[in-house]
Design a protein around this nucleic acid. Structure first.
Lengths: 221, 221
DNA sequence: ACATCAAGATTGTTGAACAATATTTATTGT
DNA sequence: ACAATAAATATTGTTCAACAATCTTGATGT
């Protein structure tokens, strides 16, 4: 990679607006299933309809929007089946990550740092931050594979999962129990105990999936 | 730009042309790294430049095109690092598939059928078909996970891999030895011997990756 | 309440235009 | 002749206005 992030202001409009809308989607500014009118969005973001359509094309391919021919673009509304699928993907990829973990990998250090930060954030009752840090923790875990494609794919499902969180009102209890679990998982990995680490990961995923599903069903039951 | 006769294609133009170009890319009709001029392609496919740009956006997000700001869209040219990464993804996902395999899963039947077809194709010396069937075989394997997202992600890397094959002149020897390996793998899975199946899968992937890398390096000295 | 059908609105696609950026060509200095 | 530089040209990025195709709405009649 010859490109470094940081000082290149010269992004294309499509990239910029895509990032903006993506951020809005992930932070729950739109309601799932809500229709995004081309005209309205275009004028709202001060871009042309054609450019916006390129943005929609991108976000649809990332699973954040659902494009229905002749009807338009809608905010993706992941349901229970989607959540189950997302956790299936997480299970496969993250198990692969645990098994690929080599001692001394930089991603491990990052995981430790993120786990520590999460404890600090909990102490401050900053649950929004705890959630973000938890995501970053698992993102770092996948970096253990040293595979750009795997990381990119994982980012997609993680973004979809954040969309789900956007649907739920109170996400604090969704992250609280997992701070400790992350640390336990890390310790197993640090010790090179893959079997124990896999078990801890599985425990985490099952537990997390259950509570997300429960919260989702509660929201509409 | 005469329209093809046939049933009512309710697809959008973007979807249709995307599929067309994707097919052309995968079958090696374009040279890797080749620049795809907007004007030329637009008139060649009889669509407007704006529509073509949506197509490029899509194919870029799928890794088949590389988009460089202000310079245009280029046919992706996967190098050795990309091949290594692709096989890393395959390893993670397909190991997950083997472990997720449940006896009697419809995908297993499909794998048997594809393996049989591959043997027929080999008897006919139809190596192009053998290659396609081999891809389908592994695609079916991932279906064992029953995860649309995992299958979709796998399709992406498989498409990229086909792009690599497009760079190589003679792909016959790339597929020949693997027909038998696939059958062996299947037998292990059928018997529920996950450990043996994983070993067979790993053998396949390592061998396949090596020959692809070798062919790629041979191609460029 | 129900189906029908005509506006009205929205998406799908096009062609032309223009600014910003790349690429090519011509020009200059040594 | 050669490298550096400037001008000319081509390409991409983006917008706008238009129109056909499709969807949505609402009025109408039964």
């Amino acid at each position: 990679m010859t490109n470094k992030p940081g000082q290149d202001d010269e992004q294309s409009l499509v990239a910029k607006i895509s990032a903006d809308i993506r951020r809005l989607l992930i932070s729950g500014e739109f309601k799932p299933g809500e229709k995004l009118s081309e005209q309205q969005m275009a004028s709202q973001f001060g871009i042309s309809r054609n450019t916006l359509r390129e943005v929609f094309r991108l976000l649809s391919s990332q699973g954040l929007l659902t494009h229905i021919p002749n009807r338009g673009a809608f905010v993706a509304a992941p349901d229970e089946a989607d959540v189950i699928d997302i956790y299936r993907v997480r299970s496969v990829i993250q198990k692969g990550a645990v098994q690929a973990a080599s001692p001394g990998h930089p991603a491990l250090a990052r995981m430790w740092a993120l786990a520590a930060e999460a404890e600090t954030a909990r102490a401050d009752d900053d649950w929004r931050r705890v959630g973000t840090l938890n995501m970053e923790f698992h993102r770092a875990m996948v970096e253990l594979c040293d595979s750009p494609r795997l990381s990119a794919g994982f980012d997609l499902v993680l973004a979809e999962l954040r969309l789900v969180f956007g649907q739920l009102e109170d996400t604090s209890h969704l992250h609280e129990p997992y701070i400790a679990l992350n640390v336990t998982l890390l310790e197993h990995m640090e010790r090179g105990d893959t079997v124990a680490a896999l078990a801890a990961l599985d425990a985490y995923l099952v537990k997390s999936e259950r509570s997300v599903l429960a919260a989702l069903q509660r929201r509409r039951g």
